[in-house]
Design a binder for these strands. Structure first.
Lengths: 251, 251
DNA sequence: GTTAATACTTGTTCTGAATCAATTTTAACG
DNA sequence: CGTTAAAATTGATTCAGAACAAGTATTAAC
């Protein structure tokens, strides 16, 4: 259960997500300094934009509850989804190079974030080497995630893509201390299809078949994994490969 | 013509690529400090690895001449190519998050690099805010490139992928002050096919057709563009879209 | 300079996923 | 709560590009 008010009030030192946001090297004093520059915002409603393409870069954001889909509008008007950001993830760093956001972040649920003004963060980071390293590390992880995404898109079959995606989510849930076999995901099948480079029809068909085969089901925003081993095999991860997650900036 | 010895001796202050590597904010004094930590290495031969998957992270590298293909080995043994790094580009930052390289960089030609030990770089960056910002900006650009790669893989047809790739190269050449219509590229068609998520056969067929149609030719490592406008149309960039490059860390 | 290996080309067949189309289900809103 | 719009499902058809195969051209090695 989400309790927006208490989350809204929580500071970094008290936040249950702090180990996710800044896993390394900040002692209590440093944490308080970080805390001082973080602004906790009122919840965004489903469909609200956190930032949009072209907006000047002001801050990075940590997801506390809910989530975002981040997309770029392509020539044809259809948007390509580059990633999903769930609690503990940090987003907005895409704007760093140009000073303007190159993508749009839309809340997929009622969502609360911490806003970290980037100027302040950069100034603080210049005084706290470990925070600075953490920042670089964060971006490096994003890059690794995006590469995995690209690999998925270029070499995997539709079934592999979908099962791999669910497997990533499952592992992510577990890493966060939640059930890896039963969880909620407030994403449209359509959005997942876009992310995976597939059509909604194909996703629907594969979901139907995998439910039939008792591997997992995904209905009404609820995912339930019946046969994790089968899922691993279908995802092509049976006896090899790295166990990275698709979006693990803060894990 | 490459003259390895003179390149080998050049320092950052004299280097023709310095505007590419560090476009922002370093004055002469700062540049000298950076120069002091950079190690210029003897040339690598074609096929040599600059770093390989799993190796501990020691340094980032700036390409001076030649180039690299960066790939990750997938389950099946085939490797997925995540990018190409040409003169002026900086590579190696993928290892930052984990402390170990998650990919392998292979020289595609006789190649010279500057090695920048990361510990030194990070220490220096903590004293030079503009260098630190530059580092973050670099990673942000890499991320943007990887997203463009993912978008190309998920939504573009084979012809669009290939023409877009050539267009990116062309623009990159121009930005570097070289001819955008006639240049050398020491890549195998096979590697480009892997990068684009296609088979060598498909690449070969499309190249044959585009040469036939007098759009561009690519034979014996030499690319020649006959009809840039047609190329732009085929790449699906006719009257819209951003003009980013695929690998523009230093441009 | 000859040989061996690797890369590239070209043709044919086949298939996975897109596309088109028609319902059914779910969510949104007054 | 009923109405309407959006999303998801299911089916039929099509097609772009993969896979397979067999040749030719380059490049590398000795």
């Amino acid at each position: 259960m989400i309790t927006p008010i208490s989350l809204f009030n929580a500071s970094c030192t008290e936040c249950g997500l702090k180990k996710l946001c800044f896993p390394l090297g900040l002692d209590k004093a440093d944490m308080l300094r970080l805390d001082a520059i973080v602004k906790r915002k009122y919840p965004l409603q489903k469909g609200d934009a956190l930032f949009t393409t072209g907006q000047p870069f002001q801050a990075v954001y940590a997801v506390r509850a809910g989530g975002f889909k981040v997309s770029t509008v392509s020539a044809s008007g259809e948007d390509q989804i580059s990633g999903f950001y769930l609690p503990g993830d940090i987003l907005g760093t895409d704007a760093l190079a140009t000073g303007n956001h190159i993508s749009t972040a839309i809340a997929i649920d009622t969502t609360t974030v911490c806003e970290v003004p980037f100027q302040d963060l950069e100034r603080l980071a210049s005084q706290l080497p470990s925070l600075n390293h953490q920042l670089l590390s964060l971006m490096s992880k994003e890059l690794a995630d995006e590469r995995m995404h690209a690999e998925l898109l270029s070499r995997k079959s539709a079934e592999e893509r979908l099962t791999l995606f669910v497997l990533w989510l499952s592992r992510r849930q577990e890493r966060r201390g939640f059930s890896g076999t039963e969880f909620r995901l407030g994403l449209l099948h359509r959005d997942v299809a876009l992310y995976l480079g597939l059509t909604p029809e194909t996703v629907s068909r594969i979901l139907a078949r995998l439910a039939e085969e008792q591997v997992f089901s995904w209905r009404n925003k609820q995912i339930e994994i019946f046969d994790l081993q089968a899922l691993i095999v279908l995802a092509g991860e049976s006896q090899h490969e790295k166990t990275n997650s698709p979006r693990a900036q803060c894990g």
